[in-house]
Each structure stands twice: as structure tokens, then as C-alpha cells.
Design a protein around this nucleic acid. Structure first.
Lengths: 92, 92
DNA sequence: TGAGGTTACGCCTATCGTAATAATG
DNA sequence: CATTATTACGATAGGCGTAACCTCA
């Protein structure tokens, strides 16, 4: 599992559509489609139901979405916390 | 920032030594050394003081260690939560 | 047949490991 | 001089984009 996969997943879950998620993230659709499938494989259960209209979150997906947002928030927090605490006061 | 970088960082912080962290993670030292530096570059401040005996956590490193553990715990939790909730009851 | 997701395929970057190099008490 | 971290460098794997393909109402 990678942070990119988690970000792609959240985008698709929010847009309920791979194409819109791709435009939002400014990358092409196939990478997102592949990474979502890879994530599902790793987790051992599908997160979305594929429909002709887009992607519908399954219960497992709803559950993972909650955790995914927490992971990304923790990463943001870690980053900003360290950026606010330089080792050398002259550095920034 | 990647989850691998965070795992490498935690291992070095715990071992206070790149070589021991490498053996623990079963990879070579250089990848760890490089990823730690890359992480420090991205965060904009050093996390360790390099000594001839190993690596000493700086204050920024102590701070980041706390966050890093939370991120990894959140990833573990997300994984196990989904693994316990198969979409298909027959799946396991 | 149209909207959307997926597969195939080639390129390019990132990461690894081995070996050589530097730094320091 | 022994221990530890780093740099150089070649090989490999993983990720992206374009283009072609599939699926379903």
C-alpha cells in the first residue's frame, strides 16, 4: 500500500468516477484504475462496485475511506509539525 | 514522502544505527541512508545528528517519530479493518 | 452507441544492492 | 584503525501516459 494509492482511492470515492478523479489529480485514468485494483488485491476485498455510471463505494470501501482520510490527515500533520520546528533557527 | 521512508525512519530512530535498522528490515544500508536524507530534505530540517557511533534523534526527529508511529498504526488499522470486513460473506 | 473502466505496451524515473569512499573518535 | 554513514554506479522494478479494447444499458 502506498500513499499515492490512498490518495487515488479517496479521490475516486469522492468523485464516484475514475475520470473525474483523474482530472482532479491531473493524471490519466489508467494509473488510477490500476492502483485501485492493486489496492483491492492487497486488501483482499473489492472497495467499489463498477457500474456503467462510475464507481459505487461498497461497505468495505466506506470503512476504508474513513481510515484513509485519517492516514492522510496524519501525514499532513506530521509534515507541518516538523516544518514548524526547525533544528537550526537560522534555517528558515 | 512514502510509507517506506516512514518505516525506515522509525527503524533507524529505534536502533539509533543505520546498519542495525537495515538488518532488521532485511535490506542494505544505502537505501535507508538515502531515504532518510530524502525525507529530511522534503521536511526541510534534519531529523538525526550523525555521530561516529550512529544516529542521534534531534528534537525535530523526536517530534516526527511520534507522528510517524501514528501514521503506521493508522495504516495497520485500516488494513486489518478492511480485511475483517469481506464484501462477500463466503470470501472469508 | 456512448460513457466509463480496463488492458497492452513502451518509456522513464525511482529504488535497490554491491563496491568504493569519507569521516570521526 | 575500526566503525559507521555516504556516494557512485549499474541493474531492476514500478508507475505513468497513449492507444486500443471491453462492457453495459
Amino acid at each position: 500500500m502506498s500513499l499515492a494509492q490512498i490518495r487515488y482511492f479517496v479521490a475516486v470515492a469522492e468523485e464516484r468516477n475514475v475520470g473525474r478523479a483523474a482530472r482532479k489529480l491531473r493524471i490519466a485514468q489508467p494509473p488510477i484504475s490500476r492502483q485501485i485494483r492493486s489496492l483491492e488485491d492487497e486488501l483482499g476485498s473489492p472497495l467499489f462496485a463498477r457500474t456503467p455510471r462510475g464507481m459505487d463505494l461498497l461497505p468495505a470501501g466506506e470503512l476504508f475511506l474513513d481510515h484513509a482520510r485519517k492516514i492522510l490527515a496524519a501525514v499532513e500533520l506530521a509534515t507541518s509539525a516538523v516544518r514548524r520546528t526547525p533544528s537550526d533557527p537560522r534555517d528558515p
